[in-house]
Design a binder for these strands. Structure first.
Lengths: 210, 210
DNA sequence: GTCTATAGCCAGATAGAC
DNA sequence: GTCTATCTGGCTATAGAC
């Protein structure tokens, strides 16, 4: 099965409008998207604080000053990054739902795709967890970043509930926590096999619940 | 059972030497320790990047410029913070080992004490995981911070091995990953009950392995 | 050993020509 | 809409009096 490429690996296409009725709109969309894609990439690799707007602008091939035409502040750009991750995550869950009817298969498919990314996770960790943890340290809390984890928990809860589990919520929290914790150890120890081993363990565990 | 207070909650005592044979040494030790304690606290709450030396100096009641008498760079101070956490973690494991002979009880004791800290974890997360994740984003990797997780994995591995489990290493990785992942969700959602629920689940799980 | 003042740098953000 | 040049502030780190 092929899942949609994560936003992390496939840069967003600089979609040139197919019918560029108005040149300005086409250009604007392209630059904005490139900036967000560059920000997603750089923040994934370096974290929010360590990534400068100059880094992002350079990666996107946009002059620094021009960034402020699209985003009033750095934080606005970070919010756009979170939105992009959210949209990507939702697309992935939708694709899994479309490809598999049984909740058991859906849950296994999720961990299968995570295992496929184990190399990237070993290098940079899970982008959702990283964002939540870093933004959580801010005075105003994680804010919208928390949605990144909530989305996964909700989706998993739906699957467990469809399996007839009354403890669906708890199981969903557990399965996401196991993934996030494994991602942390996988990246800290730079050992992709940890995530792969966890994926197969989760698959077995899911079967015992069915 | 009472475990030694974590470095996170009990500030290091500004130990005035009981026999201050030499005034200078006593003062120096006190200031250095206060700086490390303040750094541990501020970095736990705000993260490494967001914490300035001015923050730390103010918290410790030391003039900013004086910090450089004790630490050549900010990074040196961060290393001292990691060392302090390591020492604290080792002390905690030693205390558990001393209080319980059976590995099953030792593992349960660990999660019991983590559950007791659930409120603090709900606010700021696990300091070890936070440090690993943030420093992992640096060009040179997590460096010595990885020891923080390795220490826990090694200790857990020893317990599982004493239980006669040939898969002790894998089990140790799993149990630490479960804790770290739960800590992330606990702090992101500001819900201490997640950690408490996980602690009792782990206790049950440990029993099934015995 | 201690502390004040400040140097030097680099980030986010803005002004304004084009 | 685009881009260069620059302002402003805050941070790490140092100089040097005491």
């Amino acid at each position: 099965m092929v899942l949609p490429g994560s936003i992390l690996f496939s840069k967003m296409t600089d979609s040139v409008e197919e019918h560029p009725v108005e040149g300005r709109t086409a250009t604007r969309r392209g630059k904005r998207e490139r900036l967000v894609a560059a920000a997603v990439e750089m923040i994934f690799r370096q974290g929010v604080e360590a990534t400068t707007l100059a880094d992002i602008a350079a990666e996107a091939g946009v002059p620094l000053g021009n960034v402020y035409y699209y985003f009033k502040t750095k934080n606005d750009l970070v919010l756009a990054v979170i939105e992009a991750h959210l949209a990507e995550a939702r697309a992935m869950f939708a694709a899994i739902d479309a490809a598999h009817a049984a909740p058991v298969d859906r849950l296994k498919a999720l961990f299968g795709s995570l295992a496929e990314r184990s190399d990237l996770i070993a290098r940079y960790g899970c982008p959702h967890g990283s964002l939540c943890l870093e933004l959580d340290k801010r005075p105003d809390g994680p804010g919208p970043a928390a949605e990144l984890l909530r989305e996964g928990v909700s989706w998993a809860e739906t699957q467990f509930r469809a399996m007839g589990r009354p403890d669906a919520r708890e199981l969903a929290v557990q399965v996401i926590a196991r993934y996030q914790g494994t991602a942390l150890l996988t990246s800290t120890f730079r050992d992709a096999s940890l995530m792969e081993a966890e994926a197969s363990r989760v698959a077995q565990w899911i079967d015992t619940l069915d």
